[in-house]
Amino acid sequence: MKTMRLPVLVALLVFVTACVTINVYFPAAAAQEAADRIINRVYGTEGEGEKPAEPAAQPSQQPQSRTSSAVTLALVGTLNWLITPAEAAAPNIDIKSPAIQSITAGMEARHSSLAAYYANGAIGMTGDGLIVARDLNAIPLRDRSKVQQLIADENKDRAALYNEIALANGHPEWGKDIRATFARRWVANAPAGWWYQDAAGGWKQK
């Protein structure tokens, strides 16, 4: 009987140790770099303290295609197909999907209407990566309704953006981490004088 028990115990032990939670690694550094790229595009500060966005397309030295004349043997001239060979997918956060591009373009266009209100404290950045009207009295009466609409639109786009980045990278569950990354980077990339919410929910001026 004792000899029977040992394998059972071993099996149990194996079973127990096999119950390991699978941790999906969230590429925090890559996410931050991706967030900075998008944020700088939205803020219109591309190229400021930012790494080159993408490696420039390198013309391939090798002919990729050619036209040949089989009968005459005379060379027509090699037609170089210079289409950039696709780069191997690097382990980073992909932000090139049309959905992300489209949302980012919309936010970039909107930013010029909002920038003045970030600067005068009418709009503040919240701790969850959105924006909020923190002082309506700092917005001219005529624009008060419109700016609130822009804020609502911006927040809709931001929520969609975080979601789309997670989706485009095949990890819908990253949405929360991406949002948290953006929440930090919106503030970090903002010019001095803009208002943001600290961890306790209080307002601070950068």
Binding site: Q64, S65, S69, A70, W81, I83, T84
Partner: peptide, 24 residues
């Protein structure tokens, strides 16, 4: 891409790039 007829003047267009960037 274009496979020529056997009779002259024969012209073939041959592609070698099998992975191409869509935007390009």
């Amino acid at each position: 891409i274009v496979k020529g007829r056997f009779l002259p003047p024969r012209i073939d267009v041959v592609g070698y790039a099998d992975q191409v960037d869509w935007h390009t």
